[in-house]
């Protein structure tokens, strides 16, 4: 379980994090989204113990992260700007990681050789960007982490490799109960891999829910009323309404059954509930709150 409470971090007076609070249940995959500069990476650097918070708490499994070596031995991270030593090969880096992570598994290292197919004697800095990222996954998974922190992890990976690394990560979640926190801009992909989502903006967390909860409490309905109507009946609480011809598209914050029951009172010709994608949920939930948020769902 990862718990961040009222986290504040200022750089030269600028509050990169302004009271951010998240809670990631153990064994879940948590997607952290938000526009550029929202504070995702800053938050992640607190989780990996790189930054020290001004105020607030950063805890994993009930322990504070800062300067906690025993805890950090159980946390593996892939930052967005990874670092490999000059002249180092995959094997060199493996030795380096092995020295820090007591649970480093050579068995896994050997098994993953077949998956990534990167010559371990090659110099990492001579590899392509995508291959360097593959090396990062290779090493991180060998650490047998309880917590896996990923900052835009699959950027630069080809479609086959994307699925490959997700399958490895999710296998670990199912088998070992690894807790994963992932920041990403790819909402379509997050929908498959995450079970919890948090959205950040301006150093705060605007919304945090389980995916199931999000999808069960928001519904999109296509409705045709018997009489020609300009707008849906005013008694019906809608988040967003639009109209093409006689078909009204209504976004409502309730379950599909409840929405259909409420509309049935108007004896409509047609009511069709369409599930919302994560992208749509974000657009409608947050479109009114802040325009910058809208930009992430491109």
């Amino acid at each position: 379980m990862i718990e961040v409470k009222d986290l504040v971090k200022r750089f030269d007076g600028f509050a990169a994090l302004d009271g951010a609070t998240i809670s990631v249940p153990a064994g879940s995959v948590y997607g952290l989204v938000g526009p550029n500069g929202a504070g995702k990476s800053t938050l992640i650097r607190h989780l990996t113990g790189i930054y020290r918070q001004d105020t607030g708490t950063v805890r994993m499994g009930g322990e504070d992260v800062w300067e906690n070596t025993a805890l950090k031995a159980r946390v593996a991270a892939i930052p967005d700007d990874w670092y490999y030593f000059l002249q180092s090969t995959v094997r060199d880096m493996m030795r380096f990681y092995r020295g820090f992570y007591p649970r480093f598994s050579m068995e896994r290292y050997e098994a993953l050789k077949d998956v990534f197919r990167i010559e371990e004697k090659r110099m990492i800095r001579r590899l392509s960007k995508g291959m360097q990222k593959q090396v990062a996954f290779w090493l991180a998974l060998c650490c047998m982490p309880d917590y896996l922190i990923l900052d835009e992890p699959v950027d630069g990976l080809d479609p086959v490799m994307r699925r490959q690394v997700w399958s490895l990560v999710l296998g670990d979640v199912a088998q070992r109960g690894t807790t994963v926190l992932v920041s990403s801009h790819n909402l379509r992909e997050l929908e498959d891999v995450c079970d919890h989502v948090g959205i950040m903006d301006h150093g705060k967390v605007l919304l945090e829910r389980s995916l199931a909860q999000l999808q069960d409490t928001t519904v999109k309905l296509q409705v045709v009323f018997r009489e020609d109507r300009e707008v849906p009946p005013p008694e019906i609480p809608v988040l967003h309404a639009s109209r093409i011809g006689r078909v009204h598209t209504l976004i409502m914050r309730m379950s599909a059954q409840e929405a259909e029951a409420r509309l049935a009172a108007y004896d409509p010709l047609l009511v069709d509930a369409v599930p919302l994608t994560l992208e749509e949920i974000f657009i409608y939930e947050l479109g009114g709150v802040d325009y910058a948020v809208k930009d992430i769902v491109l």
């Binding site: 064994g27 399958s167 999710l170 296998g171 199912a174 498959d192 891999v193 995450c194």
Partner: peptide
């Protein structure tokens, strides 16, 4: 098994369990 499906489809195991 949940685990087999999760790795095969690259889908969250908790979603499959649900």
């Amino acid at each position: 098994s949940v685990r087999a499906l999760a790795t095969q489809l690259s889908i969250n195991p908790n979603t499959i369990q649900r």
